[in-house]
Design a binder for these strands. Sequence first.
DNA 1: ATACATGCTGGAAGCGTTTCCATATCATGA
DNA 2: TCATGATATGGAAACGCTTCCAGCATGTAT
Lengths: 348, 348
Amino acid sequence: MGLAGIKDVADRAGLSIATVSRALSGKANVSAKSRQLAKAAADELGFVPSYHASSLASGRNHNVGLVVPSIHRWYFSSVVEGVSGTLLDAGYDLTLYNVGDRPERRHSVLNDFLVRKRLDAVIAVALVLSESEIKQLLAIHRPIVGIGGALAGASTIRIDDARLARTATEHLIGLGHTRIAHITGDAELNQDFKLPGIRRAGFEAAMEAAGHAVRPEWVVFADFTIQGAYVCARNLLASAAGRPTAVFAASDEMAIGAILAARDFGLRVPQDLSVIGMDGHELGEVFGLTTINQDARGQGALAARMLLETIDAGARRPAKGTPPSAAATDREYPTEFLVRNSTAVPPA
Amino acid sequence: MGLAGIKDVADRAGLSIATVSRALSGKANVSAKSRQLAKAAADELGFVPSYHASSLASGRNHNVGLVVPSIHRWYFSSVVEGVSGTLLDAGYDLTLYNVGDRPERRHSVLNDFLVRKRLDAVIAVALVLSESEIKQLLAIHRPIVGIGGALAGASTIRIDDARLARTATEHLIGLGHTRIAHITGDAELNQDFKLPGIRRAGFEAAMEAAGHAVRPEWVVFADFTIQGAYVCARNLLASAAGRPTAVFAASDEMAIGAILAARDFGLRVPQDLSVIGMDGHELGEVFGLTTINQDARGQGALAARMLLETIDAGARRPAKGTPPSAAATDREYPTEFLVRNSTAVPPA
DNA sequence: ATACATGCTGGAAGCGTTTCCATATCATGA
DNA sequence: TCATGATATGGAAACGCTTCCAGCATGTAT
């Protein structure tokens, strides 16, 4: 018994190929009896339609592409999880493009993979695309949504990183801190990834507004991992003399790294050092980390739902000059300021 | 300008469709001049072949499916990263099936998605399949490789979890510990996931061989996360009276949770409590964690390479009754015992 | 010069569906 | 009874490629 085709089903059900196709895909204009016959025959033969043939004929792929810069960091794996769940439930496949930090891989993904007319839609996470890249993507007439990255011309889901960074910093300032350090993302590694700079700008804005100096040696660059931030924070906290009283880390993972470093020096959090993060990492609970909670998984799920709607609404054959995208909406995803106990008034 | 088809390229190059196809896919029997003409025309038109049409015609999908139970935990995201990189470099797509712990999702993935003749191969991570499920998978004549899970009939890449768990336990015993606790995986959550039980068996075997009692209250169940193990370990270490002197955690993440819990009680690691993990998580370095290093990323990459080879070697049309798989090989992936400084002789 | 192998080429037959369109069936109202 | 519309059906034309096959040049050995 090889793989059964729709022809086999039709023969067995005593129907035409056309009717079987309609019956199985739930289309109208099929009598109840025929539908049942077709379904029974399909079941008995273990028939499942070939995606390729079906896609080729219908122009529908049942497949959305997801481009991420990494899969290890909390934020990205959470988004992937959200997207994945929603898609799977809707019967869609998820094609994952983990471009990493290798530019040539980024290039091939953008130029070869995405363009190959195989995807119904694309979700790009924290990816900054050039104008020509966006144009190219839009040219294949697929809806795109960007998460956490600026994608001019495409719909985006994002949080207001600058404002939230300011809020976090203001929380420390409000407690009386003036000697505040900031652990930010790596400057060079990934030019695609503008987020660290945005959060850093929010930090600086809040400091300046409060009239506190931003000391360059207290703005340190880590890689968004616990271990990376741990090393940075050790340097930061090494000299008992000129030590900050508070740290704002651009991610929870880095905040945790800072807490671990503080513990190494016998510093108590929050009595000796306040630490605030940003993200909502599950591990934050263990450390009592004050943070700004963003539901990354929910953001992924929302992106997937938005695309599924667009796809369902959209014309069957995207090649027929459909407008690039209904309207590029820019949604701000809700966040929550989560005060736990890693922040307090500065030591006397 | 819509999407250019091969016909357009052929017209522009003044060649036939057939020749263009051969030229662009690097086939033989094309003159250098024709090849150049075809490539130039394709470039100018921005032509990229439709995967669906190409797959339908050739029977090749350039796509492998990856089934994982989760994407958050270190092991899985590392494997995904390894697979992803290798596949991307080879020009293959990765379709990710994150089945999670929801059985209905597992069911639909196994029964609908994987069977749809869309994949050239399947990689299943830590997935225990029933015989009928394996049979069904093999029936679609696609090579399968399992990573870290028992997949009878398919090739597998694995580490010898029982032996390594024994080794880890013996390391503690060798230092003089007799009061050893074990943090294992959740018993109920995921029936697919036999690994915790295997490691637990290794632990018990070592204890028995040494003549040490396995105290049931010192075998605690966590969920493979830092935070989950942290909670368990707090309970474990709460009573100063009957406290273990060493902990073997079934994963590095759980070992780190135990270290954090120990610190909460003012216990020094390793002077007061020895902790050993298993995996090779990057974060282990921060904690000086003694562990057994397994290169999860490398395992993913190896699985992908094995499949690519099989695909390349295999018959063009798998439907033609090719044997399920050349020979189901069972490879043990090398590991490394990494002694850092979270283990020492027990306190006096 | 003839015979033959060799290298390129284009026509056309798939690949397995979906969907258009023309036809056939059936009930309904005049 | 006959026209009329609604509903079901199957034939056949896409969908956009790959690849088989036959044909036509060349080049080489007789």
